[in-house]
Design a protein around this nucleic acid. Sequence first.
DNA 1: TATTGTTATACTCTATAACTATA
DNA 2: TATAGTTATAGAGTATAACAATA
Lengths: 155, 155
Amino acid sequence: MAISPDECANQILETTPLIMHAIRAEMRSNRLPELSVPQFRMLGFLNRHEGASLSDVADHMGLTLASMSKMMDGLVTRGLVTRQTHAQDRRRVALALTAEGRRTWERAHEATRACMVGWLAALSAPERDTVVEAMRILRLIFSSGGEAGKREATR
Amino acid sequence: MAISPDECANQILETTPLIMHAIRAEMRSNRLPELSVPQFRMLGFLNRHEGASLSDVADHMGLTLASMSKMMDGLVTRGLVTRQTHAQDRRRVALALTAEGRRTWERAHEATRACMVGWLAALSAPERDTVVEAMRILRLIFSSGGEAGKREATR
DNA sequence: TATTGTTATACTCTATAACTATA
DNA sequence: TATAGTTATAGAGTATAACAATA
């Protein structure tokens, strides 16, 4: 194919916002206006990492502590997350899903999965392979801890 | 590889926000805090479609007219875009880049391109091919006019 | 002194609702 | 009546700066 890095950059820059918009629109307009994309990711992380600190979550999502604090506050207020002082290090907080939080996440996860699967049904198996492989490649480049962008934010 | 649609959905959902964050961080923190991602896309569209109406741009980006009107207003105020009444249909506006707008877009485009190319330098040629091919596939699914999400917004 | 987190403030993006002007 | 656009208002996401508490 012989794709230039330039062309590759353009494609990513043009396509990614389209995907984000479609996902956001789905999560807002349809059957689950209860969670935004960032909230969905926060709950998913806590589902996988019970007892994580705020820094852990902020680091995972590549956001500042201040932003995470505020957003997490919303989830705590809504009764989806518990926030307790860590036993050993009293500066830290230990975050975890409530039963309600877990139910909410599972509901959102299932609905999102179903919707995405519907969209992806148009693809052939090899096309899906290509997409997943590309995501793996891009994750290596863009994942938190990989490059400069994130580090700047917490400087 | 035998990837399930489920796995594919998860990968997209986890990776896309990371990419968006890295791009946003780059456009904000570094050498060009002058344009946000949506502003960059607006100018790019006007660069390609001189004289486009507000509806054209809103449609391209999958946003409501009200949102576009407000955002475009910012660019007009900053002297990057001209907004004139259309000659034939006086309800419409004809949007175009000013000289300054074109310069700003070219500067931002070049800087973004250079930055992305730097990130993508870590990839091999076949990996770039995979990424571009995936973007092409995803664009078919998610591009404005393709699916439900966008139509809802302008209902 | 360095780390963890919160609060205060502000800006951008985005939506809905109500409106005006034109067709 | 339908279409193009603006204005008003609101809410989410995000940042920086200033601060408090703990290590």
